[in-house]
Amino acid sequence: MIHLTNIDKYYDSKFQRTFVLKAVNLEVKEGEFLSIMRPSGSGKSTLLNIIGLLDEPSTGEYSLYDKSVLNLKEKAKVDYHRNFMGFIFQAYHLIEEMTVYENIETPLIYKGVKSHDRKAMVADLLDRFNMVAKKDLFPTQLSGGQQQLVGIARAIIGKPKLLLADEPTGNLQSVQGEMIMETLQELNKEGMTIIQVTHNEKFAEYGKRIIRLEDGIIRKDLINQIAHVPMIN
C-alpha cells in the first residue's frame, strides 16, 4: 500500500545541511499495524507527516497503491485527507469550541454526507466508544483518555483505510494509554492499516511490526512474531 523509497528530509542552513530523515525505505502493507519508535527529535513525526501528506520529502519517492503522491495538487491532497486517511495527535487537538458530537461530525461535513446520515454515523461511534452520555460535553470537560477517544472517533468516522497516530498516548496515564492502544488494535483487526509513532516500548508492542528510527535512519525493522499479550507486571 505505502512505498517509501530513499526518502530524505533535510533543512539547509547557511553552512550545513541537517538531515531529519535519511535514505528511508519503507513498505507498509494493507492491514499492518506499524509502530515507529525512538526518542523525540529522531524524525518520527516528520516521517508520519510525509506519509500523511502534510509534509514533503526533500528527495525520494513516495507512492500509495503504486501511484506517486509527491507534488500533489492541494485538491488531490484534500481528497486523500478526506477519504483515505485519518489522524490522531498527542495533544488530541479537539476543537475546543465544539461539543464531542460536533467534533466527531466535523470530517463528514466536507465529505458531503447528509445531516441525517451524519447523525447515524456519529451515534454509532459514540455507542461503540461508550460516550453517548458525553456527546454534548465540551472537550475540556473530558479526561485525557476520553478526549483521545473522541480524537480516534473523529479520525475514523470517515472510514479511512489508513490511520496515522502521532504519539496517541503521549499525554495519557498508562491505564488510559492502554485503553487507547486496545482500541487501535481492535480497529486494526477490523482491517484498518495503522501507523503510530511512539517512544513508549510497551505501547509500541501493540503494533504488529516495529521500526526503530535513529537520527533519521531506520536502524531496526522487526515483525512481532508473537501476538501481543497484555503485560500485567
Binding site: 500523511g52 502534510l54 492541494e74 485538491k75 484534500v78 481528497d79 486523500y80 485527507h81 478526506r82 477519504n83 485519518g86 489522524f87 495533544a91 487537538h93 479537539l94 476543537i95 475546543e96 469550541e97 466535523t106 470530517p107 461535513i109 466536507y110 465529505k111 473523529r154 479520525a155 470517515g158
Partner: peptide
C-alpha cells in the same frame, strides 16, 4: 490554530 489545523487534516479545503 488547532481548529484550523484539524480542519485541514480532516480534509477541509483551504477555500472552505
Amino acid at each position: 490554530a488547532s481548529e484550523i489545523g484539524i480542519k485541514k487534516v480532516v480534509g477541509f479545503p483551504k477555500k472552505a
